[in-house]
Design a protein around this nucleic acid. Structure first.
Lengths: 171, 171
DNA sequence: ATCTTATGTCAGCCTTGTTGACTTTCCAAG
DNA sequence: CTTGGAAAGTCAACAAGGCTGACATAAGAT
């Protein structure tokens, strides 16, 4: 990619402008406001169906890694099993998620979206991708590459591992 | 590092690869995992003091726009006055925030951080800026510019207005 | 004098997070 | 075969922080 810019460049010069407190604060505020937009569209859909963000997250990652175990989902989402279980139970009851007993290890439950689950996932992800697509389109490919680099650098190492594991299939 | 590069399609001249569903999903997941990192450090500090993210947000924006009114804060934060009031009350009781009756319009309350409030703000923002600085440094100035462009494009128009209003002082 | 705005507050509800305790299932090591 | 421990589920209780609705005050605006 384009930027190498070790930023160590001209000492008393500039180019370190992007590391001033003011710039960092703007980045922080941008994250805050952008995240609101990021979740706004799915939130509207979810509210109609009587679900919340917790349901969205479960649906998203089950769709992304069909057959994932509860434990795996737990470590991706970073919540307690009790929290996840409440969400999962309602999704299973409502017929959006199917829980299959493991064949190798029958203690494990493997999670899959049902037809109805896939449909909701689609609806949610369509809305969220539309927003992301518009933002990407407005900013252009180079900006998108930078966006992704900064986000990745911002993750905790464990989350970065999850990110790569989930993401490594496909481009 | 890793393959962030949009392997760039040499389609009929332009790179639209960054708009594939897969790329968009990766962007969505990057936002999710990065936001976790973004809030992780302040969250740890807040927990020690018995506060939550809601307190952090109030402190942040009061610091950013000292003398702001309750109504203004309300529209920035996008919560109800009851929600904000609960948070504000505890901050005022604990002596972190001061509420002064307006001079021109005595119905308004203008909010300021006290010495103690400024100190906590500093502690929180130091932690958050440190993470942001490391991410910026790792990604470089060009990536940072792209990062900010995409985030801004992702905001709802009203949030973007707030962002610009808050941000337009300084660089 | 009346309408409206800004703020504060009480009560109650929901979602989603937490901890702790306990059970069931079942793999695997002794 | 027995037993230890991991995976999963469940129940109960609690807290933070959203929400709505209702109501009270003070004070600017008409």
């Amino acid at each position: 990619m384009a930027q190498v810019a070790p930023a160590v460049a001209q000492k008393s010069g500039e180019s370190l402008l992007f590391l001033t407190d003011e710039q960092l604060r703007k980045g922080i505020e941008a994250m805050f406001f952008a995240y609101r937009g990021f979740t706004a569209d799915p939130d509207r859909i979810l509210e109609e169906k009587g679900y919340g963000r917790a349901h969205h997250r479960a649906i998203h990652f089950i769709h992304r890694a069909p057959g994932t175990t509860v434990n795996n989902l737990l470590s991706i989402l970073g919540v307690t099993k009790q929290s996840l279980n409440r969400v999962l139970r309602s999704l299973i009851e409502d017929g959006l998620v199917e829980s299959r007993v493991g064949h190798r290890d029958k203690r494990e439950r493997h999670l899959y979206l049902t037809e109805a689950g896939l449909e909701l996932e689609h609806q949610l992800s369509d809305a969220q991708r539309a927003r992301m697509r518009d933002a990407y389109r407005a900013a252009g490919p180079a900006a998108v590459a930078g966006f992704r680099q900064v986000l990745e650098a911002m993750m905790d190492p464990e989350m970065r591992r999850h990110f790569h594991r989930i993401t490594e299939r496909g481009a």
